[in-house]
Design a binder for these strands. Structure first.
Lengths: 189, 189
DNA sequence: ACCATATGAGACAGCAATGTCTCACGAGAA
DNA sequence: TTCTCGTGAGACATTGCTGTCTCATATGGT
């Protein structure tokens, strides 16, 4: 019997290595990506038709991880505040990849973006909208902007951690507290 | 009499055009930059030795505009809350350029970054620290993170406006309210 | 042992952008 | 007019990355 393709595991490894590298250096060469993954450029090119295909695959990975994080966070259950905290916590391992894709997406200006992002945007925006409807969140900040801001804060946090300006363990707390509570000190109750 | 160089005004025009273009398309060619500025590639090359020099000049411009915005915002006067609002308002016209440089800075990973950014970081962090000392801001979010988050929100806001997902007039309000107040609805006093 | 398949190494051409050059044109000063 | 200087247009070589190819090797199943 022939097992024609056990590249699946390798493919995932390459993808994650590439994600880690491109997060740090978004202009890394195919050669650098290959070296980082411990394979030759030829093999890299066999698995991903070209740099474009690699980025697309990373995009698909990012989308899948976001969806998985959303599923894990149960955004429809309990207080929206807690759901947001669960979401950030679940999405933390993917934050670096997300930060890369967030800036890379600026390149896709002409073309239509992957429908997966729309789905994710909608699910996150729905969470914020639910929080507004429940009276937890203020209504003068639109769900779309809160979603956008969440992406921005995730990217900022990922970079801050990557460059050693923030301790990894503070990631979730810093993002959630700023996003939800803001910088202002609350009045004592 | 000979007037050897009235390129100063042109240089500024080219710089601002390049900033506007690179904000939208960060991989724009020297040729595209030149065409956008209404000059030939040769002239562009005469004013900026190369693409690197152009980006450096844009960085200097961004630093100068940030410093000017900080001066204008008087970060040491009055409540820190108001100072932050003044700062965001003053920095709004430069937000696009800032967003470009914010992502471009990820490229300078190896080299030391321009000292100007350190100065600006320090001034903004000092503002947040002052707010903390005055009891306006909570102390569990570090000034460094608040500074980083401000950059991230400025970039997110600039992109949201550029892509039509946010009205330009909402820019300052959305950023300041989220940064200071957060998404949570405040208890009625 | 034998065969199949994936891999690594490297050669190769193509391409896009860069940086440098020359030259002709035109506006402005003398 | 005449001279000068900045400019635009384009040619040119160079560079770095890409994508494709071949071939030798190693690994793993039969």
């Amino acid at each position: 019997m022939v097992y024609p393709c056990l590249m699946a595991v390798d493919r995932d490894h390459v993808l994650r290595t590439a994600a880690a590298l491109l997060t740090r250096k978004s202009t890394a060469t195919m050669d650098e990506v290959a070296k980082a993954a411990g394979i030759s450029r030829a093999t890299l090119h066999r698995q991903f038709a070209g740099r474009d295909a690699l980025v697309r695959a990373l995009e698909a990975l990012g989308i899948a991880e976001c969806e998985a994080a959303l599923d894990l966070a149960r955004p429809d259950e309990g207080p929206a505040t807690d759901a947001v905290r669960r979401l950030v916590r679940a999405i933390e391992p993917s934050a670096g990849l997300l930060a890369f894709l967030y800036t890379e997406n600026q390149l896709f200006e002409g073309e239509e973006q992957n429908a997966g992002w729309t789905r994710i945007d909608d699910r996150i925006a729905a969470l914020f909208r639910r929080g507004q409807a429940a009276g937890e969140f203020r209504i003068d900040l639109t769900p779309a902007w809160l979603t956008e801001a969440l992406y921005g804060l995730l990217a900022s946090g990922a970079w801050a951690v990557a460059e050693g300006r923030m301790a990894p363990k503070d990631f979730t707390h810093m993002i959630v507290e700023l996003l939800l509570g803001g910088a202002l000190r609350r009045e004592e109750p």
